[in-house]
Nucleic acid binder design. Structure first.
Lengths: 108, 108
DNA sequence: AAACTAAGTTACGGAAAGTAATTATGTGAC
DNA sequence: GTCACATAATTACTTTCCGTAACTTAGTTT
């Protein structure tokens, strides 16, 4: 039934990027290291989902989590090299959106 | 609460590409015109979701739907110029996946 | 008419996401 | 010590989205 099928690595990348909020989290971290609550307020994601996404991205070694033993304790998130290597994808989406996206159009 | 916030056009593009199957449908159509059932079997999406995605993409003028009055009637889907302009995004995802994706890694 | 094919829809169950309240941990004030 | 406070993260509940499979529609062949 299925055709030659799609490259598994490509499919994995797609399924990662198709998860809601993943791309925006990476986009935000491209601007630099951020704390949990900063990401939350800057992109408008709920704590529950952000917590899941950051764990996924940490497991995939796209995001690094660092505990800073200050007063009070601070937890910082930043991109790894693998994470920063996604920048071209995001910049292309940015460029495309500026050229082609109509702010008024709606999805179903 | 929310920071200066993210560019609305960029957010729209992200929310489109974050929908499950959208990117793979476009990927498939980059290979050329396809019929409904061809897309279905090549990427493994259900008829229900594919139908919704194609309607969305048609409304956004990313995909063109053409009825060929043959025997029996054939319905062909292809990319518009706007659709083809997304190719760099998809090629970057492809490149990134080849360099960085480990086939064994799991999401949560 | 019965059977076939392709495009698309419907009904139903399960998974993912939104919201808000709650917990955990560590601080300083008293 | 304990009370109030802040941040990271989890839990409970609801809603929305997705997967599966059966069904519908329309035209064709037998």
């Amino acid at each position: 039934m299925a055709q030659p099928t799609i490259c598994p690595k490509f499919e994995k990348a797609i399924s990662l990027l198709s998860q809601k909020w993943t791309t925006l989290v990476i986009y935000q971290l491209l601007l630099g290291t951020h704390r949990f609550s900063e990401i939350q307020s800057s992109i408008g994601v709920s704590g529950k989902v952000l917590s899941n996404r950051l764990k996924d991205l940490e497991n995939l070694e796209i995001v690094k989590r660092e505990v800073i033993p200050e007063t009070p304790v601070i937890i910082e998130y930043s991109l790894t090299e693998k994470g920063r290597s996604m920048e071209p994808i995001i910049r292309d989406i940015e460029k495309w959106s500026q050229l082609w996206v109509n702010e008024d159009a709606e999805l179903s």
